[in-house]
Design a protein around this nucleic acid. Structure first.
Lengths: 193, 193
DNA sequence: GAAATCTCTTGACTTTTGTCAATGCTGTAA
DNA sequence: TTACAGCATTGACAAAAGTCAAGAGATTTC
C-alpha cells in the first residue's frame, strides 16, 4: 500500500523494517477519482502528498477562469502547495486528479511529530526539498534563458513520462505557452528532422 | 565577523554561545573585490556562501556571450551553484561581485561534517532550502503565468532592495527581458499613475 | 452506434517583444 | 577640462507569440 513511498524513502535514507512500521503510523492512504480535488484554492493545505498510482496536476485560476498549470505529479512524485502547508495559510493552488489515484498523505501534525522523533525523517525531507529546489532552479533557467525550441526539448527530456499521459494543451500551460504555439513549435522541430 | 550569518541562523534555529563557537570552526571568511569571481563556469562549486556585506550576481553565459542573470545576493542572502555543490560536478553558473564583499563560506566537507555532528545545523539547512524553494516556486509562477506588468510589480515588491543597488539592464536579464522592454514597461506604468 | 465533447492542427490577423540605432545623461579617468 | 564608457530611454522595424476561427480525428457518453 505504501510501496512506492518507502521505495523513494529508501533511495535517499535507508530504513529498517521497524522504522518503516513506525513511520506507517503517521501515513494516511487516500484514493481519488479522476477530476476530484485534492486541494482547492482558499483551503489550507493540510497534507504533503506522494503519488502511489495515477496522476495529478496543480494549477492557478486567473481572472478570466483560465487554468495555469504549475506542476504535474506521477507515481513516486510528491505534490502539495508547500507554501500553504508550511505556513498554514490559504492555498493559491488547486490540485486535482488527472486519473484515478492512490495517494499517501502526511498531515502537518504527523510531519512535525516525525521531524521531532525521527532524525532520518528530517534528513529525508531535507534531501527531498533539496532535489526539488535544484530541479526547479534548472527549470527556471530554461524558462528565462533558453530559446523556445531548446526549452521544448529540455522539457520533453525532463518530463517524457508526462508527455505520454497528459494532453498537450496542459503541457503548453505548464510551459507558459498557448496550445497553438506549442503545436507550431512541435511541427517546426519535426520538419527540421 | 560572522554577525549576519548567526543572526540569520538564530532566526530559524536558536543557538547557544557554545554552539555558535562550535560552528565557527567550520566557517571561512572571504573578501572579494568588485568584479572578482566567486565561482566560474566549469569549476566545481566548493562552498555555500552567505553574504555579510556587499552584493553578487549569478549568471549563465550563452553562445553569443550574453550574460543571463539567474540570481542576486545581498547582505544575509545565500548564493551558490547548489546543483554543482551537492553533486560536486562542474558548475554551469558564474558568480561574481557587484560590489566589494565580505562573505562567509561553508565548504562541502564542513557542510557534511556539520550535518553529521549537529542536528540543529541540519534543521537550519532544511528550513533554509525550504524557504528558498517556496520563494523560487513563487517566482516561477509569476514568470510563467502573470502578464508582464503584474510580473514587474511582483518583482519590484519582492526585490526592492535589489532595485536600489543594481543597474536596470541586470534586472531585465534576471526577469528574462531585454533592457528596452523593461524600460518600456516602466514608462507604461508610470504614465498610468 | 450516433451525438457530443475533447484534442490537435492550421491559417489569418493582432499584439507583444526583440533588435538595431541614435540620443542624452552621468560619472570616471586621463 | 576633455574624452570616454556605461546606462537608460526612444523610435523604427523585424520577429515571435497570442488570439480567433475553422476543421479533422479521437474519445467519451448515453
Amino acid at each position: 500500500m505504501y510501496d512506492i513511498f518507502f521505495q523513494k524513502f529508501n533511495e535517499k535514507v535507508s530504513l529498517t523494517a521497524e522504522e518503516e512500521d513506525f513511520i506507517k503510523q503517521y501515513l494516511t492512504p487516500k484514493k481519488l477519482r479522476k477530476r476530484q480535488y485534492l486541494l482547492q484554492e482558499g483551503d489550507v493545505c493540510k497534507h504533503i502528498c506522494l503519488v502511489e498510482k495515477g496522476a495529478l496536476k496543480a494549477y492557478l485560476i486567473d481572472e478570466k477562469g483560465n487554468e495555469s498549470i504549475t506542476a504535474f505529479a506521477l507515481e513516486g512524485w510528491t505534490i502539495s502547495d508547500l507554501s500553504s502547508f508550511f505556513k498554514q495559510l490559504p492555498a493559491t493552488l488547486n490540485i486535482d486528479a488527472l486519473e484515478d489515484c492512490e495517494l499517501v498523505l502526511i498531515s502537518k501534525a504527523a510531519h512535525e511529530e516525525l521531524l521531532q522523533k525521527m532524525p532520518k525523517y528530517e534528513t529525508y525531507m531535507r534531501l527531498l526539498i533539496t532535489d526539488a529546489y535544484v530541479a526547479l532552479q534548472q527549470r527556471m533557467t530554461y524558462v528565462l534563458h533558453l530559446p523556445l525550441e531548446e526549452r521544448y526539448k529540455a522539457f520533453t527530456q525532463m518530463c517524457q513520462s508526462i508527455y505520454q499521459r497528459v494532453p498537450q494543451h496542459m503541457i503548453a500551460s505548464f510551459m507558459g505557452l498557448s496550445p497553438e504555439t506549442l503545436s507550431r513549435v512541435r511541427s517546426r522541430i519535426s520538419n527540421k528532422k
